[in-house]
Write a protein that binds this DNA or RNA. Structure first.
Length: 482
RNA sequence: GGCCUGUUGGUGAAGCGGUCGAACACACAUGCCUUUCACGCAUGCAUACAUGGGUUCAAGUCCCAUACAGGUCACCA
């Protein structure tokens, strides 16, 4: 069997976003499943839209996710260069060849003329524009005349209107588009730079790309690309068009959408684990056989089957991401999680007043409920807030007849030397027994009095973390207000 | 508007003509556990195959139409 070579080819116009990451991921999975190569190529022919560090940023975020290219601009293989702007001459050579073969022709129309033609067609009630082929049969004299006027030609591909372009899409089955629906399109712009649809084909062919998985928006580009392969007598890759990702309102994910975080770097900043993201993305438009949903990267690679790629749009389900990331946070070793969480805490809270043991304990306490590491901040924050109990909570404590309990427990706490979880626990137990209070009635008043919160983790541990002094002070304040 | 797609419960998603009286997961609810919080476990949940026609002994599964949603129609990628 032919070597599997797939690629992810972003344009460096922004950072890696969700859609790109997912496309890259499926290409990567396919490559690794079939022991092939995953290639990273830069499509940077639109000079104006390129942003500085776009390439590095794409690569970095990809690698963070665990998607490591076998060949890339910074780690070239035998098929370089891997940036389109470094391959410009190549495209020109092939374009020239297409002209010689009669598949393409020079077009001297100016943008103004084209706009004019388009307006006319629109005025005539046509929605889709077709180039009028004004330059199709230019004589050498006419060309010379245009050049004398200072015009620079673009090169257009001459579409065979009698042909139908058909391919078997790996995810969608057979798709065909008649040539008559496609206008003669530009392959080389008048500035001498190849257009995307032309450059991809040359690159994919020369880089021996065997399979192309990309977004659904490329379906309509595919016939154009097929024309080039056929004209140049190059071997066609197999195509597979992935579904779009939609947001929780079922709308296509546009880069401006603010309902969900768009960029991988944002997830990284919020402390999601890369393995969890990898797992989550693999489930966006694909499903494994069987009933499990949590898998390691290696397991996903082994199980990956392109025939199980979905045809209908996949929704970015934030809650599911929470759940998956939470699962990975439990699996990851505590030290790693501690380090990540500590980083967030240091940035937001005055935790240097606490020792390392305190930190480890509090992180271990909250780990089971963490959806992503940055969440630790809101969980730990109450420990640093000044005492501030709400009236309704005071009323609630009264309702539970908590005053007597608080007085008793404060007294016991004061007498304790070693303010430690196990002892605190037995003290609470003992007090409960003496006053015959149990369950919620026993724990809630203490919790609210000390932390002013209804939630927060195992109470004895929480109390230890507050420390004896603070606990007693807060209970005292509460009693006074009751 | 042309062309190209898609449409299964609140959400993701299985399902490739009979085993579908439709899995599984998330969410939600209830119960158990821990005298609290959370985790975990168990159970339940929803009157889900867009609509209408075919084809067939048999259709979520094939065909056609309609509706809705999306993609695309550039000297952007």
């Amino acid at each position: 069997m032919k070597e599997v070579r797939v690629r992810y080819a972003p344009s460096p116009t922004g950072h890696l976003h969700i859609g790109g990451a997912r496309t890259a991921l499926f290409n990567y999975l396919y490559a690794k499943h079939y022991n092939g190569k995953f290639i990273f190529r830069l499509e940077d022919t639109d000079l104006e839209r390129n942003i500085p560090h776009g390439e590095a940023s794409q690569l970095e975020n990809l690698e963070w996710l665990g998607i490591i290219p076998d060949e890339s601009p910074v780690n070239p293989g035998a098929y370089g260069p891997y940036r389109q702007t470094e391959r410009l001459d190549l495209y020109r050579d092939y374009a020239k060849k297409l002209i010689e073969l009669g598949y393409a022709y020079e077009c001297y129309c100016t943008p103004e003329e084209l706009a004019e033609a388009r307006n006319q067609q629109e005025a005539a009630g046509k929605f889709s524009y077709r180039y009028n082929r004004k330059c199709l049969d230019l004589t050498t004299e006419q060309k010379a005349q245009y050049i004398a006027e200072g015009r620079k030609p673009a090169i257009r591909f001459k579409v065979d209107v009698d042909k139908t372009y058909t391919w078997h899409d790996i995810v969608r089955g057979e798709i065909s588009v008649p040539g008559k629906d496609i206008s003669d399109w530009v392959i080389i712009k008048s500035n001498g730079i190849a257009t995307y649809n032309f450059a991809v084909v040359i690159d994919d062919a020369l880089m021996k790309i065997s399979h192309v998985f990309r977004g659904e928006e490329h379906i309509s580009n595919t016939p154009k690309q097929i024309m080039i392969y056929e004209a140049l007598n190059m071997e066609l890759p197999a195509f597979g068009h992935l579904t779009l990702i939609v947001n929780e309102e079922r709308k296509k994910l546009s880069k401006r959408d603010e309902t969900i975080m768009q960029f991988i770097s944002q997830y990284r900043d919020e402390g999601y684990l890369p393995e969890a993201m990898f797992n989550f993305f693999s489930l966006l438009g694909w499903s494994p056989e069987g009933e499990e949903e949590i898998f390691s990267k290696e397991e996903i690679i082994t199980m990956f089957d392109e025939h199980r790629l979905s045809k209908s749009p996949s929704m970015f389900d934030r809650k599911k991401l929470f759940w998956i990331d939470n699962q990975y946070i439990q699996k990851e070793d505590l030290i790693t999680i501690s380090e990540m969480c500590t980083k967030y805490l240091e940035a937001e809270l005055p935790i240097n007043s606490k020792d390392e043991g305190w930190l480890t304990k509090i992180i271990a306490l909250f780990r089971p409920q963490l959806n992503y590491c940055k969440e630790i901040i809101s969980l730990v924050k109450p420990f640093f807030e000044p005492f501030n109990i709400k009236d309704e909570d005071l009323a609630f404590i009264n309702e539970l007849n908590g005053k007597e309990l608080l007085i008793a427990i404060k007294d016991k706490f004061e007498k304790m030397d070693d303010f430690e979880t196990e002892i605190i626990k037995s003290t609470i137990k003992e007090t409960g027994k003496e006053l015959s209070i149990k369950g919620k009635n026993l724990f809630m008043p203490i919790r609210i009095a000390v932390s002013n919160e209804h939630h927060g983790g195992d109470l004895p541990t929480v109390l230890e973390l507050y420390g004896k002094e603070q606990v007693i002070a807060n209970i005292e304040k509460t009693i006074k207000l009751l």
